[in-house]
Amino acid sequence: MENIKTLYSVKKLGLILLLIGPAFALFTTFVVMPVFQGAYYSLFDWKGIGPLNDFVGVKNFVRLFGHEPFRTAIVNNLKVVLFSLLFQLPTAFFFALLIGRQKFPGAIVFRSFYFFPYVLTEIIAGVIWRFIYNPQFGFLTQLSGLIGPEKTEIAMLGNPETAFNAIFVVIFWKYIGFHMILYIAGLQGVPKDLEDAAVIDGASPLEVIWHVIIPSIRNTIMISVFLSVIGSFNVFDIVWAMGQGGPDHSTETLVTYLYNFGYKRFAFGYGSAVAIVIFFLCLVFNVLYQKYIVGDSRS
């Protein structure tokens, strides 16, 4: 009996290793190890090559928080988070309600058009939008010629005050379809009889949405919020393609900051410190999310 048990557990261990081992190895080699190496480098003044002998402790982090563009970057990231939660997700939800339910004519066609920007390569989206925003012949400039008495050159991206708003529009356009699809999926699971019962009870459409639909797709909303926040902290390609964090660092986000002040200046220890901050911010969010949002819904 004892023998069989050992045999069984050896077999089980082998099975576990066989199933989980390869993914574990790949993930550890290419994700976890580089990340930990980066954490270690962040304590040094290091140019990316040569011996790690200039230990500076937390000096990189101190410098980081004293640097104005870094503060701009953090604020910009928080703006993306807020903007996504307050505008992008509700709009996505609105469109999901609009075309994702009952028999909406051409629903599938609409769905695919709304979703298409999501599959588009970021770098290509950046090129297209730079064309649209071009101050000399761009869309807004042409529009001003049609509306106003004469054509005025409008430079959204060239003005530090408006550049980040211009990028918001692109982020909105690019990712709204993804969240809409999540909500459409969630809506399939809303019990129809509950909804009907509410309508018979005389609930207004808004009340139905608030009291029936939203509670039933709570899980979906949570996932959408989670992905949106984590994605907002890590936004890079679009911002990079729209102007590399410029003009004058006004559109810097954490990852573009890492690029501009870490890699570009051969300050690898410093850049690693930025990476650690990003990781830490995501971690804090994750802990709060697990504790307050996921935890809340379980109770």
């Binding site: 071009n134 101050p135 000399q136 050159e153 409008i154 430079a155 991206l157 060239g158 003005n159 530090p160 550049a163 102007g243 410029g246 003009p247 004058d248």
Partner: peptide
């Protein structure tokens, strides 16, 4: 030119 702060060198030479 308007928007020079975000213009690329390509934009410059094009103008």
């Amino acid at each position: 030119q308007t928007g020079f702060l975000s213009a690329s060198y390509d934009d410059e030479s094009r103008i």
